[in-house]
């Protein structure tokens, strides 16, 4: 049985409109995967950098999966929220990316996006904050029905991940 270790951290975020951010992350896999140990989801603290342009979270990820097939390779999903001075949190971006399939150390940049509403929504958002969110988060996971979705480019989330693969070669899988 092939095993995957994902060890690393959510380093931080950059290029977002404001810097006081926090992030929810979770790992998603297909059916043939089994979580052996570790936490597959988490939420970071709110970081408000004073000098830097980059928000740093340094949130640890240490997960051990075992699998019986390659299909459904783990994906990491992030939701970035902005936490403002009044204590409100608004959505700043959804992001999704694959865990690299090669062993070794990887720096990953996950681009994020945010759904955009109508003119009225944007007008309200400008003055009141908040903003549209996805009612069904499945849209992010599947990626098939996104066609009608209007989105806006947001910043990116950075990961530093070490991947250790075990027994893949034994089953004829070239990674």
């Amino acid at each position: 049985m092939a095993e995957v270790h994902i060890i690393g951290q959510v380093v931080g975020a950059s290029k977002f409109p404001s810097k006081s951010l926090f992030c929810k992350w979770s790992l998603h896999t297909g059916g043939g995967w089994k979580l052996i140990s570790g936490l597959k989801e988490g939420q970071t603290q709110v970081d408000n950098p004073v000098y830097d342009e980059i928000t740093h979270w340094s949130h640890p990820i240490d997960v051990h999966y075992s699998t019986k097939g390659v299909q459904g390779w783990p994906k990491i999903h992030v939701q970035v929220y902005h936490y403002d001075q009044f204590g409100r949190s608004e959505l700043y971006g959804y992001g999704f990316c694959f865990i690299p399939t090669t062993p070794g150390s990887h720096t990953i940049e996950c681009c994020t996006w945010r759904p955009v509403g109508s003119w009225r929504d944007e007008f309200m958002q400008y003055f009141l904050g908040g903003g549209p969110q996805l009612r069904a988060p499945d849209v992010i996971y599947t990626g098939n029905d996104r066609y009608r979705l209007q989105t806006q480019t947001m910043g990116s989330v950075h990961f530093q991940l070490g991947i250790i693969l075990r027994n893949f070669h034994k089953f004829g899988i070239e990674t």
Partner: peptide
């Protein structure tokens, strides 16, 4: 079904549009 697809509509910001569309094919 996975062999073709359409991404969402993305607004360009600073000359770059994030699509962040994942697909998986066997």
């Amino acid at each position: 079904d996975d062999s073709s697809g359409i991404t969402q509509q993305a607004k360009i910001l600073d000359g770059f549009a994030n699509l962040n569309h994942l697909f998986e094919m066997t």
